[in-house]
């Protein structure tokens, strides 16, 4: 595509995947710069996948230190206090990831995601956030959208055995194979704020129950000033009360948000490692599709629940975006 060829070393290492997505997609990957925030199990899975795939660079943001919870689903951190004492999660993950693929530059950025300005974000092609409040998600998504350069925004979260991915590629042009031909396609995405503002009653009847349940939890944490995941079974009555209010407000039948689902989501907020692997895999695939501009990308939510085993795509966009 731009005349630059893959090196011998790259061709040997990436042989099996070049057979899947082609040499030009591999070249685009090697020029992509990705920012991730929230180094828990799901993001660790995602980082592994894209570092192996051979992106250009990966920047990690997470100044928290190791806790038992942080270790629970994260295979990037060696279980050795001598190794992890005094280091942030981002630094520890960085050390491991560097080792995965010497051809990818992995680094750490210290600081708070919401305090970074547009200039910082403009260094990246893809921004992925996890474990942050919905205010922060909206803020980062808007910062990316304001820039003249198009930056793909993704958020991913795993609670217990449920997970959600959100995708905003703004105006995305890509090619796909249809029978013998390669055709050009275009998709217009909604921002996170636009997507979650879509009135519930106009959504199709079969929209994933997880979508509504996660919005209730999100609103609850925000109203209570909690960090994401800082809920317990003791909060269930208040969460159920909020659910009723929101359903009334949106004229949505309450049966669309089963109490049992909300109970699961508040009683255990730890990531379930198999679900981290699934979400990190799907997200990795999507980011690779987005960068390479090859194949239909996910638009614009993905839900997985280990209870029923379904991995569902939902398109929840405002009218301008659909």
């Amino acid at each position: 595509m731009d005349g630059e060829e893959l090196t011998e070393q790259e061709t040997a290492l990436y042989d099996r995947q070049i057979r899947v997505w082609g040499a030009d997609a591999q070249r685009r990957l090697s020029k992509a710069h990705i920012l991730v925030c929230g180094m828990k199990g799901t993001i660790a899975e995602f980082c592994k996948n894209i570092v192996l795939a051979g992106i250009g660079s990966l920047t990690l943001v997470d100044d928290r230190v190791v806790t038992e919870e942080a270790l629970s689903a994260n295979f990037l951190i060696p279980l050795d206090e001598n190794v992890y004492a005094g280091k942030t999660l981002a630094e520890l993950c960085c050390d491991s990831l560097k080792d995965f693929n010497p051809m990818v530059r992995v680094s750490v950025e210290k600081g708070d995601l919401s305090s970074f300005g547009g200039e910082f974000y403009s260094k990246f092609d893809v921004v992925v956030v996890s474990c942050c409040s919905f205010t922060t998600k909206k803020l980062i998504n808007e910062k990316c959208r304001k820039l003249s350069k198009r930056i793909a925004f993704y958020s991913v979260d795993c609670r217990d055995s449920c997970g959600e991915i959100f995708v905003d590629l703004q105006l995305h042009t890509y090619s796909k194979k249809k029978l013998e031909e390669t055709i050009e396609c275009q998709l217009q995405y909604s921002s996170f704020e636009e997507a979650i503002s879509v009135p519930w009653k106009i959504l199709p009847r079969k929209v994933s129950k997880l979508y509504f349940a996660l919005r209730v939890i999100e609103r609850f944490e925000e109203a209570e000033g909690r960090n994401p995941g800082e809920v317990s079974i003791a909060d269930l009555p208040s969460v159920l009360k909020l659910k009723k209010e929101l359903c009334d407000e949106h004229s949505l039948n309450e049966s669309h948000i089963p109490d049992a689902l909300l109970e699961r989501l508040v009683s255990s907020t730890r990531e379930f490692p198999p679900v981290c692997a699934i979400l990190g895999g799907i997200l990795g695939q999507e980011v690779i599709k987005g960068i390479s501009g090859k194949g239909d990308p996910l638009k614009n939510f993905f839900f997985f629940d280990a209870m029923d085993g379904k991995g569902l795509i939902e398109d929840i966009s405002n009218s301008a975006g659909s």
Binding site: Q17, V20, N49, L52, I288
Partner: peptide, 21 residues
């Protein structure tokens, strides 16, 4: 040669563990 990428293997491994449990 079978085409192979890390992401699919990760997803499948997650699903195997869910069934194993």
């Amino acid at each position: 040669i079978v085409h192979a990428v890390a992401t699919t293997n990760a997803v499948i491994a997650g699903l195997i563990v869910i069934e194993a449990i």
